[in-house]
Design a protein around this nucleic acid. Structure first.
Lengths: 90, 90
DNA sequence: TAGATGTTTAGACAAATATCTAATTATATC
DNA sequence: GATATAATTAGATATTTGTCTAAACATCTA
């Protein structure tokens, strides 16, 4: 849960997630969308991977990043605990 | 959105939210649940208030904090954009 | 094998963050 | 008014974070 909130606490990382919402992309393609250096984007991708918000797959020189929604579902569950009438974790 | 994710990116602040899920509490009551100093808790409460995750109400010497779910709904909306088949912000 | 391309690692640094103690403000009560 | 209680503000400090450049690693192709 910590890694998840940490990963989400950055506008660039959230923008990366929104990019990947459309389709998987390589590290270089992702970097093109931002003004930061490639190492910086690589670091952001690392944090997203640590939080399991993305998966990475290396094909030759290219590393393709794909959105992984299963962790988002965990966050969804955490959120719903606050919804009135929901007694989960009561 | 930034203030929201920032506020959520701390286990103590998330625990405070979970405490307030049961009922509103004063700053002192909240502080009793943790091992940190009162100023530290006061600071966490300030960040939660900045994110509008809680509201505060002063009655005499006491300041009562109450959970505010409306911002959580915003987060919920952000999350749902990632759900397949959801074309919001497409 | 050499060079080009894609990506990550290493190391440095400024800015932000979480924490503390001491001091201050606000209210209640004697 | 003086003192006690509730809470916040101020200032200090160690840690974490986001960014950069330079270097290294991995793969492809001529």
């Amino acid at each position: 849960m910590n890694a998840l909130f940490k990963a989400l606490n950055d506008p660039t990382r959230r923008a990366i997630l929104e990019l990947l919402r459309q389709q998987p992309r390589t590290a270089g393609e992702i970097a093109e969308h931002f003004q930061f250096s490639k190492p910086t984007i690589s670091h952001h991708l690392d944090l997203l991977r640590q939080a399991e918000l993305v998966t990475s797959d290396k094909q030759g020189q290219f590393v393709t990043y794909t959105l992984n929604m299963t962790v988002m579902d965990e966050l969804l569950g955490w959120l719903l605990q606050f919804k009135p009438g929901n007694d989960t974790n009561a």
